[in-house]
Design a protein around this nucleic acid. Sequence first.
DNA 1: TCATTAAATTGTT
DNA 2: AACAATTTAATGA
Length: 224
Amino acid sequence: MEKKEKVLLAAHWARELDADGLARVVEAMVFRSYPKGTIVIELGEMFDPWVGVVDGLLKMRTLSVDGKEVSFAGLHAGAWFGEGSVLKQEARQYEIVALRDSELALLNRDTFMWLLDHSAEFSRFLVYQFNERLGQFIAQVQYDRLHGPTARVARTLSLLLNPVLYPNVEDQLKISQEEIGLFAGVTRSVANQALKELEGKGIVQLEYGGIRILDADALRTVED
DNA sequence: TCATTAAATTGTT
DNA sequence: AACAATTTAATGA
């Protein structure tokens, strides 16, 4: 019970809930752990609950027609996702893969719908989140053609830094180059080269076990 | 607190 | 994929 409250304290959407709402959420919340590399949600799977990341790092991806991997977003601790599938009660349009050992919190559909009906804060949170995702999608369309590894890695880092979807992330990202590679869809070696290039441009600073973002705006506009 | 060892991460081939 | 170098974390004196 203590853990659930901790999770809710970190969740933006839960802060304005009244006692009744909180009680419902606490009652309904369930935890699940996944080892690194696990496909948490398969493409096309019917998976009802709304999902929050308690700990770890996951990525959301789809496969393009020719089988190429397209990553949409990284999911940090504090991120909540899957509202589209919950609302429409349809199969998941994407895959969720754990990049690290990760723990998720699940909230069943009934509770989600109750929140939507009873909490203006919750509804507002969803609107912001939808809007943010739309922005990412548009950026993706612009970016995904004719770009080399450096631009790809740069975009990846931008997505990880996005302040609305990942509220607890600061300019110091604790992520290994291997994980960045997994996330960007490049090998660690390529990721390493790309990062060094970005470092040479003064956009990031490499550190052991992570990187520091020096210029988030420049990161969004790298074009190789 | 310091020294040693193991594990993780990085940079290069 | 494999290697060596470096950094951190863990262990015990």
